[in-house]
Design a protein around this nucleic acid. Structure first.
Lengths: 215, 215
DNA sequence: ACTTATGGATAGTATCACTATCCACAGAAC
DNA sequence: GTTCTGTGGATAGTGATACTATCCATAAGT
């Protein structure tokens, strides 16, 4: 297939595809002559993945590139590839605030208590610590007090997700599933959580004290 | 307090604070003379909230403004204010793809089955449908098959979150907690989920078949 | 008196994610 | 075999976003 068809089938404009090729997000097609190249189904799949990472996960292009690179590094153990994907997905670090130390201690304590096997330099540790520190700084530290029930919930989910993903036939598909599951799954959880919040808030607050409608 | 102190205490530069004032993110201080204004603790708190929404949640400035506006509209029932916040937080809609109808039906079915009280135009419905449609398009539809266990997990979390938040003394603090809890809580869940995934993947995949290290 | 800080306005900058345009040439259609 | 659309590759331009920089008259602190 040539670039025009790739564009039509992916919904991505030709100039944008060219841009992704330049940026190295998409591998070049196979040249059949100096100005003619052939693209395969793998290109189409890769393009859809790129759009999902950009549109759904809101990743910047450079980060997409890193994710795809760790996806393509097939000379590592699968678990290590997952780690690489996680590292590429981590949001940029904020300079640690006052509550940083307390928050990080809380995170390490949680990991210890749950017996989780986590590399000590996992980027999510920093992200989590920053987030908890931010909650303290915003005077909402009590929301972080219940970390354990959050951990319960996500551990169950992770259990299912990893199991589902590990059942794929080949490792390349597994790695791709990890990316999609991590990134798109996050949005799925977010949206579902908003729905659940709306339901619960309708029930608990719909006409409760503090409701200006009832006063 | 004057703008210099506000800057020092918040860690936000004076020009940036001026920018937020211009953009209407931060209400103006009380003028004590034509070129001298006084800022209160509320300004400091608001500024920290703004930074959290921008840095932690990655919201663009215009969206932050919308969130703050729905936060300040105190003439509504609390449950409605939560809805307004949710609406302001919704990511921009994507044009629906082929799988859109199927996905939306699946979402409505889930809501019905769980007996959730959700307004039919809740933005999260669209977000969720899009996300599921994207999973189908990426050939990872099976990740969406288990929607119910995701719903279980988030329903429990929402239950705790809304209860925690509803226990605040005054409605303004409740509304602020809703924003912080929704936005920052999301990052908390994300980071925890990554940790849980790493743990589970270490256990299930650390030296499993498909692991190039063991072959 | 004098240095520093302030409120308000206006203009400029860096980054990002594309778009637009150009070119010589390929392939397909007549 | 020529004409017309499509292509790979390169280079330059655009629009949006989130600040920064500068200026000014005036106020506060020393």
């Amino acid at each position: 297939m040539r670039i025009g068809e790739l564009s039509r089938r992916s919904g991505v404009s030709v100039p944008t595809i060219k841009f992704y090729l330049r940026e190295g997000l998409l591998p070049p097609g196979e040249l059949t002559s100096p100005n003619q190249a052939d693209y395969a189904d793998a290109h189409l799949r890769r393009l859809r993945l790129i759009r999902a990472l950009i549109d759904l996960a809101g990743l910047p292009v450079v980060r997409v590139k890193e994710v795809l690179e760790s996806l393509d590094s097939d000379d590592q153990a699968l678990h290590h590839r997952i780690g690489a994907v996680h590292r590429a997905l981590a949001p940029p670090r904020q300079p640690a605030e006052d509550d940083g130390a307390r928050a990080e201690a809380q995170v390490r304590e949680l990991i210890e208590k749950r017996g989780w096997t986590i590399e000590p330099d996992a980027p999510a540790i920093g992200t989590l610590a920053e987030t908890i520190a931010a909650l303290y700084a915003l005077g909402q530290g009590d929301l972080a007090a219940d970390l354990d029930s959050y951990a319960d919930a996500v551990e169950r989910l992770a259990e299912r997700e990893v199991a589902a993903v590990a059942s794929r036939p080949d490792t390349d598909r597994i790695a791709e599933s990890v990316v999609v599951g991590t990134i798109v799954g996050e949005r799925l959880i977010t949206a579902l959580r908003l729905l659940a919040q709306e339901h619960v808030s309708a029930r608990l607050l719909g006409s409760a004290p503090g409701d200006s409608q009832s006063e």
